[in-house]
Write a protein that binds this DNA or RNA. Structure first.
Lengths: 337, 337
DNA sequence: CCCGTATCTGCCCACGTGTGCACATCATGT
DNA sequence: ACATGATGTGCACACGTGGGCAGATACGGG
């Protein structure tokens, strides 16, 4: 009796197909077939099974199903910087799309110190894919995933490796576009505030500014590195604007630009009359009335759609050659230029 | 031969313990033990196995392990509103903590139309727990989870149901605190902008304002409902400020307050000289130089820590009675009051 | 030499499912 | 009546792992 009690109360064991089969008076196979679209099963029996299953709260165990060799429907999503508004907007959009596809995103914080260990642990699941959003993934991990056959899709940073698909914005084109627009409006004394020096996107965006200026016979008056945050944008822009006389400030992302706007206001520099400020990404808050920031749209919906598309193609054909999709950014004129 | 080829190339099958065992010249059990801390195994043999495993990229399959009856280490996280800055900050913090615990968060977008279906699908996995962040979860789903024995932890909204632990902010205390502070500073003509009318947190926060005013012999001059976004905050605040002469505006969250700040500025109302504006949550951007918003901190780290604590307790003792943990908010004085 | 003990290892079962295969049932055409 | 095809169903296996159980080996004491 003590045994019975411990069995029935201590472990409220999950209801299984066998239990449902007994309750419905059919074989376990029939239950399995009842939940498999396209399987041969008498319509009446299928209905009966579904009723019994619903009353007992039965659902086929996805773990067992995934074990059988099919897809696990689990997708790891590695987020380089969870503090960044663009990355979070991106991830949230991606999560919605994956949910709609019945793929289950496991989120991993890439900024944490224990990330490498976490990735190792999560790779114990037979993942359908690993999606990288920005960040600086250890190449060791990429090699590992490639070895165990987990397809990877990188976005925001191009990873040149076997089995890695890429979706990335034409960063240089984006800042080039913005710079050209400002030049045509008569700006000549340009400053640029980047992200961390080695960051993929920061490098591309800087090049875009320099090359557009160079085509017009101009060059950067001043530049500095930030870290993609508002606070640092504020500090770096303050220092830059105090030291140099600029009439245009191109920032590597919107957060930096928003910091720069506050800096200009505090220094009494009129935007956009005396100074144009443009950002990059077009995060939601760039359009808020408080900022009304002119920026370069790094279209999230496009990118997410392409990521999803690549994922589907990859799952349909695992040996498909790797692909790199480039997304076209476009200038969004608002009130700061 | 064609068979061989299809086996070796078409399906790059996952490397299994059996393969490693053969390569290392040991039994499959030995491989399993090599990855099980505390299991009897010759130290040298364990080392050898680890080396071989590393070279082949072997990791024990977590699906199979979870199937065996232990924990799956998967935790579903249901996010009511992915567009809300507070919710995203909360989720990101939660994700980091779960990662550190080797629990794998599966994110589900609660705002999507297909949410109910998605939840049903994800419940096919034997989840360790389901964490609800805000939103209005169908009670049907709560009942279902309770039936199949998946523990739930709700945060941001108190769910009274069997098997649901709660972590929630003392919303009324928070706005009460802010209101009292403004009264002591001499404010008398109060307005309040809430969230959607039926929202749990909005109701509590409104009550806090009304009760604090009532204690001081005052009452609300004007109030309206928003939807917790900046844009709507701007519109609603504009309407409110045009119609009524207020000297204090309490907003149900920071986004609404940020919209209200822009509205006041556009209407030429000086903040904080002629009007105090306070928000709720203390999201990161409330502290940005552009806003410098006085607000009520709804401490994320505290709440996440309590959620994690409840999760650990629940896993250690599944029959532990449900618990409701209340978090104390506190006023954060900045530049808008 | 024998026995007890401590340490190590292999066999085998259970976990819950999907599905190939063989078989059963039944309607239909000749 | 019999062959044939269509439709439905149960058996049994495989998926990859953890761990219980018993057997093997080594070692030391009597």
């Amino acid at each position: 009796m003590s045994d019975d009690q411990s069995k029935t109360t201590h472990r409220p064991r999950r209801v299984t197909a066998q239990t449902v089969a007994e309750a419905a008076g059919v074989s376990r196979s029939a239950v399995s077939r009842a939940f498999t679209p396209g399987a041969y099963l008498d319509a009446g029996k299928r209905k009966k099974i579904h009723e019994v299953a619903a009353s007992m709260g039965y659902q086929p165990n996805a773990l067992a199903a995934g074990l059988k060799g099919g897809r696990s429907h689990l997708v790891a999503v590695f987020v380089g910087n969870m503090r960044s508004a663009y990355d979070t907007e991106f991830v949230m959009a991606l999560v919605g799309k994956l949910n709609a596809l019945n793929k289950w995103p496991i989120l991993i914080d890439g900024a944490d110190q224990t990330t490498e260990q976490a990735i190792q642990q999560v790779l114990r699941y037979p993942l359908d894919a690993l999606i990288l959003r920005g960040g600086s993934m250890q190449s060791e991990i990429v090699t590992h995933c490639s070895k165990i056959g987990v397809p990877m899709i990188s976005t925001g940073r191009i990873v040149e490796a076997r089995g890695v698909d890429n979706v990335c914005c034409r960063n240089a084109d984006g800042t080039g576009l913005a710079t050209t627009t400002l030049i045509q409006a008569g700006r000549t004394r340009f400053g640029f505030i980047g992200g961390p020096a080695q960051f993929f996107s920061s490098v591309g965006r800087r090049q875009g500014v320099e090359s557009a200026l160079s085509k017009a016979g101009l060059q950067l008056v001043a530049q500095a590195d930030g870290d993609f945050t508002v606070d640092t944008g504020f500090k770096v822009a303050t220092a830059l604007l105090k030291k140099h006389s600029l009439d245009a400030l191109v920032c590597a992302n919107d957060a930096t630009a928003i910091g720069a706007l506050a800096a200009a206001r505090d220094l009494g520099i009129a935007v956009p009359e005396a100074l144009s400020v443009v950002g990059f990404d077009d995060i939601e808050m760039a359009g808020w009335p408080s900022f009304d920031l002119s920026t370069v749209c790094n279209p999230i919906d496009d990118a997410v759609e392409r990521v999803i598309g690549l994922l589907e193609q990859r799952l349909a054909n695992p040996s498909k050659p790797s692909e790199t999709v480039l997304i076209d950014p476009y200038f969004v004129p608002r009130g700061t230029h």
